[in-house]
Design a protein around this nucleic acid. Structure first.
Lengths: 348, 348
DNA sequence: GCCTAGCACTCAGGCGCCCAGAGTGCTAAC
DNA sequence: GTTAGCACTCTGGGCGCCTGAGTGCTAGGC
């Protein structure tokens, strides 16, 4: 099965150039392909093919007497071909049983979602040697439980238990409340709000609940106000990032002027949001200029959705140079997202 | 008042070299000092002084026909002199009222300690343009309250309220427990453990509590086990880091081989631990080789303790090149630690 | 006795030059 | 359609030169 547009030979050559360039990070010469890949033809023939591929926009020649470098377009073709289920040419797409086992072991028995996410990005960063990112679980979560815990005379802690996540907020008390007061309000709120998602909590709902306990109306309103902030952007999705310095290991980022924009982008939540979200259905690969953020045009992003009890709630992935062993990276990210899904479904 | 060893002229020259080098990041020539600083003597005389300072180890000459660069030792002398209460030569050590106001405003009304820390490192990174780090509150915290909240049949959430911090842990239930069971155990544990620090919880204590409620002994033990892990290293101090890519703005880190070790170090918690902790009493400055970690020998760390209700619990600071406007940086870090202390004491 | 003007000396870094080596495109033969 | 051969192009490294910056030293001045 061939990629559209390319005959068998051209595809063979293109895949070989990609593989060679990924491995060596230097323009690939016809001679090198001839020696290292059993293409069964001479360097001159390969040159013809490379010439054609260059005219078609799949290869690029830094200067006249240099070899060829794959373009974003070539990587895209290659990745589409991989994603259509083809075995990667010469590269093992599947992870070995031992690797799977190692990943599974690292990801299991994380009690807390944050621990699981931290472990996920650490694992991914160490396995790929690329900066790794994960978003915290998000989505139209339904509230399960609200608990108020006294902290002091002026403050109580609001514990929000929702599907797949627990958050704490501090609520200020207008006047001291006893532990029983807090428990009563907690139960009332839980009964009234369980099953709703944060966005469904309107002022009307707040009023209705407050009416039921006139002497704790202030407290109820304060809690509802906090809940609505909790649904807001500021406290919503956050990101775990690990191994940003890995990008500096890559030859294409030896120049600080190239590397800095990328590192700066990885520091900024809005950028991560744009680059990673919305969550893909399976694995998503964005190559170079396909990225929505200019700072990332020299990078590829491989990301996969993770799920909690079947529902997609977040994304985990890596950021690397466009010159990337896609088959392996995709397999790793995909498997890690599965392991994370499993760990989270189990945890909360 | 003079620094030991140096006469008035030498000190004047040294401070001027430092100031000039901090501003321009290039070896400082005698002529330049003569023109830009009113030292009242000719370039030749300044040269004599610079020569002496070089022999004394305060200045360094990259090559014969270059100007002078301050050594770590020079910065140390300068910082000691600053910390002894001297006004910075030519640099305003104090922050302007407007700056203080801006910092205060950014730091106020953060309900949650994590928000306050995140805001602190963001503020510091944007004001200094250096990577900024803060440790989460730590110390021999006394427990105040324990709460168990049902999550499902198999799991409960353990909420640990201690001085200046709240943490969540998941506890696995051997067998289903009712909400009342959990409340009862929560109250029992709170009564037994409030006022103790985590390290004081021994097996004996656990046994004693468990004996009081034989039918919930498993649960009690599970909670105590979690508490002791909570005191352990893994879940103890964490770090907030912001603006790591700022280091690449500095001329001394234009070479990736210089920059990468520093960035990699900032990625690693153990390193941050060694570099930032233990918490200093006031502001602590570590210059170049004074740092306990080799990767940081080309950097200076300016860190200050922050307090919750008077007790030092954490550290906030910046990592920059040794060529740093110490007076300003120290003032910023000190003030930010104060603002953070205030914000945290208020928050939890 | 300290300061300064003048001067010789040193050295890094930029520029131009050359050359080797790598890799191509083309052409002619198979 | 493929291949061998060859001329051509271009980069990058090495080399030498030269300029400019900055010093250290010395001799003279207040």
């Amino acid at each position: 099965m061939l990629a559209r547009e390319l005959d068998a030979r051209k595809q063979q050559i293109l895949w070989a150039v990609i593989q060679e360039y990924v491995a060596r990070a230097e323009p690939v010469a016809s001679e090198a392909l001839c020696q290292r890949y059993g293409l069964g033809v001479s360097a001159a023939t390969i040159r013809n093919g490379m010439h054609a591929l260059t005219e078609m926009g799949y290869l690029y020649q830094p200067h006249t007497s240099a070899g060829r470098v794959p373009t974003d377009r070539a990587y895209r073709l290659y990745v589409d071909w991989l994603m259509a289920g083809h075995p990667a040419a010469g590269v093992e797409q599947r992870l070995s049983a031992a690797e799977r086992e190692r990943i599974r072991r690292r990801m299991q028995s994380k009690d807390h979602p944050e621990d699981a996410l931290a472990e996920a990005v650490q694992t991914l960063a160490s396995l790929t040697d690329y900066p790794s990112v994960a978003s915290t679980p998000d989505g139209p979560r339904r509230l399960q439980r609200l608990h108020l815990v006294p902290l002091s005379d002026q403050r109580a802690l609001l514990l929000v238990v929702a599907e797949g996540a627990v958050e704490q907020r501090v609520v200020r008390l207008q006047r001291p409340a006893t532990e029983d007061d807090l428990r009563q309000v907690s139960q009332l709120l839980t009964r009234a709000l369980a099953g709703l998602s944060v966005s469904e909590i309107t002022d009307g709902v707040a009023e209705r609940i407050a009416a039921a306990v006139p002497d704790q109306a202030d407290l109820v309103k304060a809690v509802v106000a906090q809940l609505r902030r909790y649904g807001g952007l500021r406290t919503g999705v956050r990101f775990f990032v690990e191994g940003v310095s890995n990008i500096l290991k890559q030859p294409e980022f030896q120049d600080v002027r190239r590397a800095r924009p990328v590192l700066a982008a990885l520091d900024r939540e809005e950028v991560l949001r744009d680059v990673l979200l919305p969550a893909p259905t399976d694995v998503h690969v964005r190559i170079g200029r396909e990225n929505p953020v200019g700072e990332m045009w020299s990078c590829s992003v491989v990301a996969a959705a993770y799920r909690v009890r079947g529902r997609t709630v977040g994304v985990v992935g890596v950021v690397g140079p466009t010159r990337m062993p896609y088959a392996r990276t995709i397999a790793l990210v995909r498997y890690l997202a599965q392991a994370l899904s499993h760990s989270l479904s189990y945890a909360v």
